[in-house]
Every structure is written in C-alpha cells, then in structure tokens.
Simulated assay, not measured.
Amino acid sequence: MNLQYVEEGMASYYSDSLAGNPTASGEIYDPEKMTAAHPSLDFGTEVEVTNLSNNRSVVVRINDRGPYVKNRIIDLSKAAARELGIIDKGVARVHLLVVSE
C-alpha cells in the first residue's frame, strides 16, 4: 500500500474534445465524473487534490495515464477542475494525497 504517497506540482484538465473517448483503463471519459490521469498511480486509486492557491480540495479516482505535458503531475476531469477553481487559468499548483488504493 502506498497511502503515504504525497506529491506537489502543476495540474491541468482534459479538453472537452476528449469526452466519450476511452481512457487508458478502458473507461469512457466523462467530464462530469471526478476522475483524473496520473503517470504511475494504479487505476482505481483515490487521490485528494488540493489547489494550493485557494485550499479547495476534491477526491478523484485515477482511471487514465498522463499528463503528457512536461512539469504536470495530474490531469483532471473538467468537473474536478471546476470544483478546484482552475477552469479559467487552466493550470494550478496542487498537492496530491492518496486516500485509498
């Protein structure tokens, strides 16, 4: 178990054009679900993501791989990005904490 996993870095969110496409786990991407892409955490892992600029947090479930942009640590669904307040800016510095695997 990796319940002490913590990471800080930049988050982004999925383009609307990806809605309905399969993720790396085979699940179909739904912008309104609390999901995310991470390069290495197991599919199904739940991660608390906190926006360090406003302290807003959400819990997302990892169901995809990515992001494939340098210096980004997680790619969020649009719903998660909205809850965190990063839609307008597009990216935010975040803190990740694994809450269940």
Rank of each mutant, 00 (worst) to 15 (best):
L18A: 09
E27W: 01
I74V: 13
L97Q: 15
A81I: 01
A19L: 01
I28S: 08
S17I: 02
V6I: 13
D16P: 12
R56M: 13
H95C: 08
P22F: 10
K78Q: 15
R65L: 11
I62M: 12
F43P: 01
N54I: 07
V59H: 03
S25W: 01
V60C: 09
S77W: 07
E7I: 07
N54G: 06
N54S: 04
G85P: 03
I74Q: 03
E101V: 06
R93K: 15
M1R: 09
Y5W: 12
I87H: 03
R72V: 03
Y5L: 11
N54V: 09
A37D: 07
N2H: 03
I62C: 12
I62K: 01
A36Y: 04
D42R: 12
I74A: 06
L41Y: 06
V58W: 07
N21Y: 13
A11Q: 11
L97K: 15
A24H: 06
R56H: 14
N71A: 11
L97P: 01
N63M: 08
S12Y: 00
L41E: 09
T35V: 14
I62G: 02
A36K: 01
L76G: 10
A79C: 00
S25G: 07
A11E: 08
D75M: 02
E48A: 05
R56G: 04
V91W: 01
S57T: 14
V99C: 04
E48R: 15
A80D: 10
V69Q: 07
L96A: 11
G26F: 12
S25D: 07
Q4N: 15
I87A: 00
N63C: 08
A92S: 13
S40T: 15
N21D: 10
V58Q: 08
N2K: 11
S12R: 02
V47G: 07
D42I: 05
E48V: 00
T50P: 05
I73D: 11
D88G: 14
L18V: 13
R82G: 05
M1T: 14
S40C: 03
L76V: 08
L84I: 05
M10V: 14
T23Q: 02
I28W: 13
G90F: 06
E32L: 13
R65V: 12
L96I: 12
A37L: 08
L84T: 06
V94K: 01
M10P: 00
